[in-house]
Design a protein around this nucleic acid. Sequence first.
RNA 1: GGUCCUGUAGAGCAGUUUGGAGUGCUCGCCACCCUGUCAAGGUGGAGGUCGCGGGUUCAAGUCCCGUCAGGACCGCCA
Length: 581
Amino acid sequence: MIRTHGAGTLRPEHAGQQVTLAGWVARRRDHGGVVFIDLRDASGSAQVVFREEDDAHGLRSEYCVKVTGEVRTRPAGNENPDLPTGGVEVVATSVEVLSEAAPLPFPIEGNTEVSEESRLRYRYLDIRRQQAGDALRTRSRATYLVHEVMRERDFVYVETPNLTRSTPEGARDFLVPVRLQPGNWYALPQSPQLFKQLLMVAGLERYYQLTKCFRDEDLRADRQPEFTQIDIEMSFVDQDDVMELGEAIIGRVWKETLGYELPSPLPRMTYADAMARYGSDKPDLRFGCELADLTEYFSGTTFRVFQAPYVGAVVMPGGAAQTRKELDGWQDWARSRGARGLAYVLVQEDGFGGPVAKNLSETELGGLAEATGAKPGDAVFFAAGDRHESRELLGAARLEIGRRCGLIDESAWSFLWVVDAPMFEPDGEGGWTAVHHPFTGPKPEYADTFQDNPGEALAYAYDMVCNGMEIGGGSVRIHRAEMQQRVFEVLGISKEEAESKFGFLLEAFKYGPPPHGGIAYGWDRVCMLLTGSESIRDVIAFPKTASGFDPLTGAPTPITAEQRKEAGVDAKPRAQEPAPA
RNA sequence: GGUCCUGUAGAGCAGUUUGGAGUGCUCGCCACCCUGUCAAGGUGGAGGUCGCGGGUUCAAGUCCCGUCAGGACCGCCA
């Protein structure tokens, strides 16, 4: 090594030692006759003292330097108790500039806010900054912890292909042209779902992998086109076994990195409860404001709008004090989410306000506070119509209320499992679509009957939710061809279609497939929560912007005509796949 | 595909409401001064297609139209 010590490791007990440090010039304080340099490396930073004759005046921010000198305790009165190395300094005897640095596009030191655009453009400098570097280091520590847990539990780490077959999952595939077979394309995996099930057939019994997944959909703060999953599958297990493992992993990570002890076992909530009480399948339990179901309450109402299959409400504490402009703002907010508006009643000391109040009877208004839990000074927001849509609107309003009113305890952790989601939901065209994926099994009590009443059947599935964000989800899978066939029938997938799309899985299931189940964690999201980041981009070394652009490399780029020809982008497949009989 | 926010010196911002000379702040950068600082200090200086294009106007950073980029959200993402 070029250096003998990490700058951040120096302490008074090193006094008297000759050391060589290597790192970057973080700050310089040039007094003419004496020059102080804070030399930073991955371990921290230390003060180096130069005298006039050492010629340190030419050192500039972020020069990469090697310094040799003697550690000494600082002169009395000059210690800096705010710094870990503040008791000592290195008196330089020689300095070598390993490389110079051009003037920086943004400051490395200090807490200056820098636009994400330029941080990503110069990501290597951003990561030199404390915050971005720490996020990646925390992610690394957490990753090791996951491997520890999995190793302790005898899981087999298996890598699955990234160049694979397009499979009919939910998202759009990224496609890769195949030079060796012009006209044919690989797809990048949306997840290793089918491979991990094959590994169960293969008898590995306990598989895991930290792996990239790819989905060609529009991006968000918590979505990137390529992202990392902890992918897990286990044989001969029940739902509780997988959930116990999931809690062990997340529990270890939170305990070892944040010192936070996860409740054990984690609370569980049914999907039905989550929708009814929080209007979400991933409720944020860091604050209350539960929804009130007023369908029964308004069953006899003369107000047309409330003559609906569902009427619900959510209370905004202190909301009656809002200005007309703020209340109108809620209407815009609701319309931007595709709703017609957001009816509201203001509960005041001396009565009720808001445009809806006059449409309600004395009795309806009189019992409203009790029915919703509203107090004088609060606003009650209503949604009426389709049960699911209305609840989702109220759930979104609840979150908005939580944010606007500062009800969310940012220091709190709210972990829970949401279980018993429906297997199917209407696809809007008279058929059914899988809520989870088509290989998810029904809860045992629906095993024989789900095809008769698909809307009622519950899936043997579970989602881990943290602070209102889904961080992991899984299910006990179907392992019998007969049951799989019935699911396909509900989904309107013909035998031929199933055969051509994932015949390889169905074939594997002919050879003694074990009962199995698993889970996948969105590792970027987990790390985002762990580090308190606003976006998963903060825990990804080289992320892409919302339009899928990488400001650092400039990807994606056009290709040359030659590349296009060679890749076979425009080629037609040589022969059609054999038509199903 | 849609809605909203943002774009002014290397960085972070103010100025845009009500059009009047690129007007300004903090940091950084360059030169010089300075022997105990640690967000060092002092003096001086450089640095601007006001995202881009068009329009209105005697006059546009400011008003209008379009467009590009970034961000948030809806749709979408099992």
